[in-house]
Each structure stands twice: as C-alpha cells, then as structure tokens.
Design a protein around this nucleic acid. Structure first.
Lengths: 125, 125
DNA sequence: CAGGATCCTTGAGGATACTG
DNA sequence: CAGTATCCTCAAGGATCCTG
C-alpha cells in the first residue's frame, strides 16, 4: 500500500510536470487567442488588435514580445515605404496545433453544455 | 480585400471564442494539475496536496470547490468512521482528456527543446 | 485529517495619454 | 500605424493560524 502510493505519487509528478511547464508559457487570457489569430495569416499589430477582441494595446504589445521571446511568433519588418510590421507564427508555434484544437473542441462542447443547462432550467420552470 | 479581411476577422472570432471559454474555466496554475492528479485514482485532500506539488491548502481548497461547482470533480463523503472525504473526477471532467494529453505532450517536447538549447549553447562555448 | 478565516503580496491586466 | 509610458485596480495566489 505504501509502495503503490509512492508509485502513484511519482507517476503523478511525471505527468503533471510537463503540464506545468506548458502552462507557465501559455497561461493567461491572451497568448493562445493571439496565436490562433495568427493562424489565419500574418497580421499587423492593429489587425491582431481587432481580431483578438477586447485586448488592449498594452497587453497586445507585451504578449507579442513574450511570444516572440519564446520563439512562438516572429516579428517581421518589411522595409517598404511606409514601413510595415507584421507578425507571423513560427514553425515552433505551429506545434501548438493539437493543444489549440483540443482546447477549441472542448470549449465548443462546454459552451453547448452550458446552453443546454439553462435551456432545461427554463423549461422546468 | 475588404471582404476577405472581414471573413478572416469573423472566422478568427469564431475560433477564438471557444478557446476563451475554455480558458476562463481552466486557467490558472492549479486546475489542470489537480484534475490530472485525480486521473490516477480518487484521492483525499492531503494526498492531492502532496501529489500536486507546491500548492497551499488554501488554494487547493478553493480550486477543488471551483472544479466541483463546474462539474469537473466530485466530492465524496464516505460515512465510515472516521469520516473519509475523497475527490474523484467526473465523467465530464474526463472529457478533458484530449486537452490534457495535448498539453502534456507539448510540454514534454518543450522541455526537451529547452534542454537542447542550453546543451548547444554550452557546446558552442 | 480536511479544510476555513484572515491577512498580505504580487503580478495580470485595464485605462489613458503620448510618440516616432 | 505601431507601439511605449504611466498609473491604477483587482484577483490570483501565498503564509499563517485556527477548528471540528
């Protein structure tokens, strides 16, 4: 019994560690939405700002720098005139696809579930 | 061009919304680690506290209540003597499997990537 | 053992204004 | 347009003590 507890415990640790690692990088309201938004094509600051609804310039600026520092997003300066700055998702950023897909699917189902809940509630009243 | 931007914009919104929904529920340092830890079997408060490393009693208590309120985790009171309280993951909680798997896999690869980075760095010195 | 109560710190995030 | 600077708020989270 002691043994099985210990095994369970270390197995837990091993599985939880990578989750914590990922969370450390991706947690917060904006990182994943920003990345997902860039999935639909390279975008300029103002366009990302529109597409990721509700984010402030300050947060967007900060999060983009963060994501760039972690190699998930790249800042590209086109030396045209006028100068155009675009953000693009990196190959490494694209490895997040399974995460985003899974989260998106679950989020959709969760939303449906909530809607059914208050639908039933109002029916039962 | 205007049209394609608009299409892209609304498509973005549609994909981002569920992600935000999911994040609202799951974000923070502890929710997913706790859920994952319960995957390995029903556990008592103190055991979760040990398995999810670094969490304080206060946070664990709060997060468990949160998760229970959202139907992801269930609190089970065995009326034995002495009374035993156990936490168990619900069927709904189990629907998070793809999310946890994806995040775990990515986290593992991310950690490997970081290790290779400083390995190369020290080699090149 | 299983937490609740209380107090405190810190950082995420928001609002507004400003600049090259 | 693409941000930075400043100031502010609030909630996440931590530390400590206490109880049935």
């Amino acid at each position: 019994m002691e043994e099985s507890h210990k095994l369970n415990h270390s197995e837990c640790q091993n599985r939880i560690r990578p989750i914590k690692d990922a969370l450390e990088l991706l947690s917060g309201k904006w990182k994943l939405p920003i990345i997902l938004c860039l999935w639909f094509g390279d975008k300029r600051f103002s366009q990302v700002s529109k597409d990721v609804n509700g984010i402030t310039d300050r947060m967007l600026s900060k999060e983009l720098r963060d994501l760039e520092a972690n190699g998930l997003v790249k800042r590209v300066i086109h030396d045209s005139y006028p100068v155009v700055v675009e953000y693009t998702i990196t190959e490494y950023g694209k490895t997040l696809k399974p995460v985003i897909d899974a989260l998106g699917t679950w989020g959709t189902e969760h939303r449906n579930r909530l809607q059914n809940e208050w639908k039933n509630k109002s029916t039962h009243v």
